[in-house]
């Protein structure tokens, strides 16, 4: 069978006003217009969305999970960024 494929697109859906778009999966489509229409049919058959983003998968730049240790290390050693790091004297309110 000859191989004619459509590019792969990542689909992001905003489920309601006030929430961010969230990744839901991917699909194949010839162009961005078809990608939006297909995303509607594949991912919002039960009104799961009010807005759709599609991004061609090859344009997504991702961090490497095997490098996650060093990449996120700077945050790990800074416990003082969290409120629980600090001791609040007994009796102190609204803090």
């Amino acid at each position: 069978m000859s191989k004619i494929e459509w590019p792969l697109w990542e689909v992001f859906i905003r489920s309601k006003q006030g929430l961010s778009h969230k990744h839901v999966g991917s699909l194949r489509a010839a162009d961005e217009e078809m990608a939006i229409n297909n995303a509607r049919d594949v991912y919002t058959r039960r009104s799961e969305g009010i807005s759709i983003w599609v991004v061609e998968s090859k344009n997504v730049v991702a961090s490497d999970p095997s490098e996650a240790g060093p990449l996120f290390e700077p945050a790990n050693s800074k416990a003082y960024r969290h409120p629980t790091f600090y001791e609040v004297p007994e009796g102190i309110k609204h803090m």
Binding site: M1, E5, G25, L27, R45
Partner: peptide, 23 residues
């Protein structure tokens, strides 16, 4: 039946994340 088509597409999407080619 349309849902079943959708299920197939969710799954082909998942299989492509493993480096397999859908076609």
């Amino acid at each position: 039946i349309q849902d079943e088509a959708g299920h197939g597409l969710y799954l082909y999407s998942a299989v492509e994340t493993l480096g397999a080619d859908r076609e």
